[in-house]
């Protein structure tokens, strides 16, 4: 075991070195900032939990946290079912299938700045395509209305990322052997039964990945949302990352920004831990069923 562990760490060494430098080190900095006050840019005074007290009593922080959590919840509620549905309906093979897959993937590789700019121009008053389309069906796309702005941001995120869910599920579905479907047909299973008892169980692991990536990447949204709304109207679309960047780089408040980062980090830690607990049993179950 010791020899095996030593060999394993030899293989892991380059990756761990990189992660220590670009993961652990910056996090250590953040923890350091969070308990210090900075004077003249480089002299640090230990202030204990002052920044945390200040932050945990600040309405801006709790507001931003609530908005980020709400945004992530809505993103999952829209993108996961929609992604599964499109993946189920996508032709399994052939030229049409590969053309659709290529087109589906295009939004995924649009730089965030382009995504933000695109949805900004789609929703311009008078000359935006979406504004005009909404006007045709009698909806006034008023970008000063927080509800409208939230819908636009959710549409934008769905446009950009639902394809990731589709691609992951599509690959998972293609891995199901035809024999399963033949057996279902002999048993006279309905479409819903096939989905519930064959497709969904086989998609479980892929879906966990999709949910995890979408949950966290939407929770940390910054660029696209900022370009479309600048956090407004008011603070209705100011998410946690906006609050953090604002505090740390624009007000240049390293201590408060550090404290906010530490809390942000603890949330990421908690969510990752929850998923980890969820994933590990799923894996051993999958292994057992593979052996059976």
């Amino acid at each position: 075991m010791i020899r095996r562990t030593a060999t394993a760490y030899l293989f892991l060494a380059p990756a761990l070195l990189i992660m220590a430098f670009c993961g652990v080190l910056p996090i250590a900095f953040v923890f350091f900032y969070s308990v210090h006050d900075v004077f003249a840019g480089n002299s640090f005074i230990f202030v204990g939990v002052t920044w945390f007290e200040q932050l945990l009593t600040s309405r801006e922080f709790w507001g931003a946290l609530a908005r980020s959590l709400g945004f992530s919840a809505l993103v999952l509620a829209i993108e996961i079912p929609l992604g599964i549905y499109i993946a189920l309906r996508l032709p399994a093979r052939g030229l049409v299938s590969s053309v659709l897959v290529v087109l589906l993937a295009i939004p995924l590789l649009a730089p965030l700045i382009v995504v933000g700019y695109l949805w900004k121009v789609l929703t311009l008053t008078e000359t935006g395509l979406l504004t005009a389309a909404a006007a045709l069906v009698g909806i006034d796309l008023d970008m000063n209305d927080p509800v409208v702005v939230w819908i636009i941001l959710l549409l934008m995120d769905a446009w950009h990322w639902t394809s990731l869910v589709v691609l992951l599920c599509f690959a998972g579905l293609r891995a199901i052997p035809d024999a399963y479907y033949q057996a279902a047909r002999i048993d006279g299973a309905s479409g819903w039964a096939v989905f519930r008892h064959i497709q969904l169980p086989k998609l479980r692991l892929v879906l966990l990945i999709a949910i995890l990536l979408r949950l966290m990447d939407s929770f940390v949204i910054y660029t696209e949302a900022y370009i479309v709304t600048r956090g407004g109207p008011g603070v209705s679309t100011t998410f946690l990352s906006h609050e953090l960047v604002q505090t740390a780089t624009i007000q240049f408040d390293l201590g408060e920004g550090g404290a906010m980062s530490v809390i942000y980090f603890l949330i990421v830690l908690a969510v990752s831990w929850a998923f980890f607990r969820l994933i590990v049993p799923a894996r051993s179950r999958a292994e057992r069923s593979a052996l059976a």
Binding site: M19, C22, G23, L25, P26, I27, F29, V30, Y33, L212, M216, F219, V220, Y222, L240, S241, L244, V245, A248, T249, L254, G257, G258, S261, Y264, F265, V268, L269, V271, S272, F275, F276
Partner: peptide, 14 residues
């Protein structure tokens, strides 16, 4: 897993 989920905004200043 945890680092993949980290917000770029957290690591920006460091």
């Amino acid at each position: 897993l945890m680092f993949r989920m980290m917000a770029p905004a957290i690591l920006l200043v460091p």
